[in-house]
Amino acid sequence: MPSIKQFQVTFDCAEPERLARFWCEVLGYVIPSPPRSQPAEDQGSWFACSDPSGVGPRLFFQRVPEEKVVKNRVHLCVRVGTGLTGEVRLATLEAECARLLPLGAVRVRLLYDGNDSCIVMQDIEGNEFCID
């Protein structure tokens, strides 16, 4: 059986384009050019972004009528502190958190045990993600 080579992460959301543009800023992703045209009745119902290097998964955002009501069962981890430990890791994570706050991200809590750390955050629609 052949292995899966690519996958897409799909977000249910209220504002697809706004959320896609937020994640472009977080991850350095881009809006595919030119965007695929949508029939008039589907305008604004979905939006996508992708890793310009082609390595990371495509992110797809689709409008759904219901609001988010519970914690995510799956979340993204934004890996900015890979290979770092202790205070150096914590400082790197804090700097990334400070960059994301003006974009509309919300800091939820810091998980820190003196060596390893992670900052739990929410995107502009309340979806949890981690900076680790």
Rank of each mutant, 00 (worst) to 15 (best):
P2F: 13
P2W: 06
S3I: 01
K5A: 15
F7E: 07
F7L: 09
T10E: 11
D12G: 15
A14G: 10
A14K: 10
A14Q: 14
E15G: 03
P16H: 06
P16G: 12
L19M: 10
L19C: 02
F22G: 02
C24D: 07
E25S: 13
V26A: 13
V30D: 13
P32D: 12
R36W: 04
R36L: 03
S37M: 09
Q38T: 11
W46P: 02
S53P: 06
V55G: 09
V55I: 15
P57M: 03
P57E: 05
F61D: 00
R63Q: 11
R63M: 01
V64T: 14
P65V: 01
K68C: 01
V69M: 03
V69P: 00
V70K: 09
V70L: 11
N72D: 12
R73A: 14
R73E: 08
G81R: 07
T82M: 00
G83N: 04
G83E: 07
T85S: 15
E87G: 11
E87S: 15
R89L: 13
L90A: 10
L93G: 09
E94I: 08
E94N: 10
C97W: 00
C97K: 12
A98F: 00
R99G: 00
P102K: 00
V106G: 08
V108T: 15
V108D: 14
L111D: 13
L111W: 12
D113Y: 08
N115K: 12
V120L: 07
Q122A: 14
